[in-house]
Design a protein around this nucleic acid. Structure first.
Lengths: 350, 350
DNA sequence: CTGAAAGCGCTTACAG
DNA sequence: CTGAAAGCGCTTACAG
């Protein structure tokens, strides 16, 4: 029954066809008609016509009039891992539950794209913006402020907006402790000092998340009185190919796998695993690998990997909380503890 | 320098502050000023003021006036695998390259959500819509037609809009052929009839993609004169837990892995792999697994897997082509051939 | 109980 | 070379 002739129908069409006025139609459609004492009969007539004609309200016009777009914006690097995919999906569900239409766009970590996309989203009048995984979010925060739009930084913090991040330091500490425990258990009785042989691979020196994780890693060692030489830290970046090479170099230098390997991020892990494929399975005997991130397939690799799963739901909830209580002059930060994901080889956890 | 006092600034603010009119400001900002013979001096003044004030044009107002929103819509099930993630990212890049702001939202395969989201996107006046992975897209296509908005179905076809899908039949044929070749090579000289021991796992009976893939699977067997009993086809759905159980039942029944296993979709594969973890590595000797989908980590499992990678870029390009040459009365379908992904254990391909 | 009117921020012929 | 005016589709006091 849709009038697919010509253009989309408007409240004027409905007013004409029902012998009422645009104002009446508007009130009926908005459900405010009883407040305006519109007769039940008129309301029913209008509603029926709207249904028959397949009317949908033009949000552009309503938004213009009301200065409320109904749009909720988010930018993020990409969707190619479970962490980012989960953040998007959770954000979308949260936005929808709050009556907004989610608008999430990926920017591939390109600062220029990030800026352009934010400007675009602002042009489209998003009512608030989640900024995910941006290394330097401050310029974007400023753009939002200039437009009078609340925003939050997720995953990577920034000075000019509230931020919610994983507890990177605490998580790294947890993960390192697990690796050290396993090494110690394997060492038991041999009096080994395997703690010295634990290495940290991946991430970017000077970047917030990496520095925090390195700090947690150091803490765990320090707590056991284990030494840590700087040459055990290899912040080779996040790209799989360079992580692959870094892992290879490391093993060549050591003459084999280190007793423990803390891999920072799933993408670095992907690279490292490419190299591990070339190793004999025996190379992993008594060696323990940890990854600060989780992936369902990575859980099924042929050697044991302990994985940390960031708490996506809690991060997004906190983001909405910050938006809802937004104060343009206070930029707190909250750290959400990650949890252990299923452990490879341990089917019960899968 | 942004005037973050009060609300967002408009062309009226700029007109006032530069002693010009809103019309002039509009022309200058749109770059059409020379066509209207506005003086260079005025143009420069306006541009400067716009920059100082941090002006961004209100797309709601412009869209309303121009009946062009600048929004490109897409709905899809979720982002939790490389295929969907790739479709989103490629779509976003394509939309941006064409001057649109992408608006992609996930619907978790819930028909109600799909409908609501499409209505919402239409309300926001998206100029066209990509409908990805929807089992029954026709009602959504009709919604778009009623609104006069072109749409295409991606991944799963529909009768009421142009569709672009992977060449499911051809791809399944390719994949099955590889598995049969490997089995034959392993069998060489033993005179075995291992072709009979190839099974198909996952997907939904009656669903387009599954039926096509089963057809390709049958074709490959038929071409070699191999028989295929119906009890070799196990369309257990896509969910990992049920696929896990199905794989387990199958192996129990056979007393071990079949010679060949064609797994339909990465999610079914995820389930099957959960079960495989409990098997001894020897169980895979001389057994060959194929998956109609690709994942970077699945490529590094401890047994050989041949994976098909759908051509996301070509699919999205074809989608845009359909939109650009849209005819509301012709609904063709194009099939894009998938390619082989890197093969597990073969580092050279990784 | 319902309609006429103004205005959200923009663009584009049309005058001058 | 530039401005006044109308109109995109809506909503909301304000009359009646």
């Amino acid at each position: 029954m849709a009038s697919d002739r010509g253009r989309k129908s408007t409240i004027y069409d409905i007013a004409t066809s029902t012998g009422t006025s645009p104002a009446t139609v508007s009130m009926v459609l908005n459900g405010t008609w009883q407040r305006y004492r519109i007769s039940e009969a008129t309301a029913a007539r209008v509603l029926g016509a709207a249904r028959d004609i397949g009317y949908t309200t033009n949000m552009k016009a309503r938004g213009l009039r009301l200065a409320r777009s109904g749009l909720a914006g988010m930018i993020m690097p990409h969707y190619r891992n479970r962490f980012f995919a989960g953040l998007s999906e959770t954000f979308e569900a949260g936005a929808r539950a709050r009556g907004f239409c989610p608008m999430v766009v990926s920017t591939q970590r390109q600062p220029e794209t990030e800026r352009e996309v934010v400007e675009r989203l602002l042009s489209h009048q998003v009512e608030f913006l989640f900024i995910v995984g941006v290394a330097r979010p401050e310029p974007l925060n400023d753009l939002c402020h200039a437009a009078g739009i609340p925003c939050v930084n997720i995953d990577l913090p920034g000075a000019n907006a509230p931020s919610v991040v994983s507890d990177n330091r605490g998580g790294a500490r947890m993960l390192t402790d697990v690796l050290l425990d396993k090494i110690a258990a394997a060492d038991r009785g041999t009096g080994g000092t395997a703690g010295e042989e634990i290495h940290f691979l991946g991430g970017v020196a000077g970047e917030y998340a990496t520095e925090e994780r390195v700090a947690g890693f150091r803490e765990a060692l320090a707590a056991r009185g284990l030494p840590l030489r700087d040459d055990r830290i290899h912040p080779c970046g996040y790209s799989p190919p360079v992580a692959r090479r870094a892992a290879e170099d490391l093993c060549r230098r050591l003459g084999g796998m280190p007793a423990g390997l803390f891999v920072n991020s799933i993408t670095a892990f992907e690279g490292a695993v490419q190299f591990f494929q070339s190793l004999d399975r025996a190379a992993f005997h008594g060696r323990f690998i940890g990854c600060f991130d989780w992936d369902p397939f990575a859980a099924f690799l042929p050697f044991p990997v302990t994985m940390l799963r960031q708490n996506v739901e809690a991060m997004i909830e906190q983001g909405f909380a910050y938006i809802e209580q937004y104060r343009p002059d206070e930029f707190p930060m909250t750290r959400i503890p990650p949890r252990f994901g299923p452990v490879a080889g341990d089917v019960r956890n899968a």
